[in-house]
């Protein structure tokens, strides 16, 4: 049958959360609806996202059911990619659902030969203490010329072009409030 991908999405009965799937109206026959009813995306929620790889920023439709992603495909309504994805975007599903994903905070103690699992609370408390210790030990009010600099010389940061705008903004805000100047990321290399 002659159906575009947009048509499939529309007739599969997928519920829409947060977006409206655009598309021209058209007549749907009973046989089409029956076929579509068996699609596994039938009761899925659909959200839109942008691919996490290069900077073309192709739009991707993400189908989720019972808290799990069951399908990802190019968004046919997006002007830049019009539903297409490259090999990376097309397999992004495999990347995010990989069993190798980190799922627990890990800690490697000084001189240890292994990571061990720790709680978020423990990890963040320890990191905060480390930050304060390093900052207080390396804070410079005035430089060698006697100029006021108020900076922390002993901590540096690299990252990240993979974070969202809002995260990048608050990350640099946090780092600068700590007095860091050694702040860099992927754009530099």
């Amino acid at each position: 049958m002659e159906l575009t991908r947009r048509d499939f999405l529309k007739i599969s009965g997928a519920t829409v959360a947060g977006i409206a799937l655009s598309g021209a109206g058209f007549g749907i026959g009973d046989s089409t609806t029956a076929y579509a009813a068996e699609l596994r995306t039938k009761n899925a929620t659909v959200t839109t996202t942008i691919c996490a790889y290069c900077s073309v920023s192709c739009s991707i439709l993400v189908f989720a059911s019972e808290g799990k992603i069951i399908n990802m495909e190019g968004d046919p309504d997006a002007p830049i990619n019009r539903g297409a994805l490259c090999s990376k975007g097309a397999s992004y599903f495999q990347t995010v659902s990989s069993e190798s994903r980190l799922t627990k905070p890990l800690y490697r103690a000084p001189y240890a030969s292994e990571f061990k699992e720790v709680t978020w609370e423990w990890a963040l408390e320890k990191i905060a203490e480390n930050i304060k210790k390093s900052r207080d030990a390396s804070f410079m009010e005035k430089n060698a010329k006697g100029e006021l600099v108020n900076r922390t010389n002993g901590i540096a940061s690299c990252g990240s072009a993979a974070m969202d705008n809002e995260e990048c903004y608050i990350y640099q805000k946090f780092l600068r409030s700590l007095g860091l100047v050694y702040i860099e990321h992927q754009a530099r290399i």
């Binding site: 996490a52 920023s57 990802m72 830049i80 905070p105 890990l106 800690y107 000084p110 990571f115």
Partner: peptide, 22 residues
């Protein structure tokens, strides 16, 4: 001697936010 905290983060489909393309 380095103590390392390896923290697991969410992928782009597990949170919301904006990003700027080229």
């Amino acid at each position: 001697k380095t103590e390392v905290f390896m923290l697991p983060c969410a992928s782009s489909v597990e949170k919301e936010g904006s990003l700027a393309n080229s």
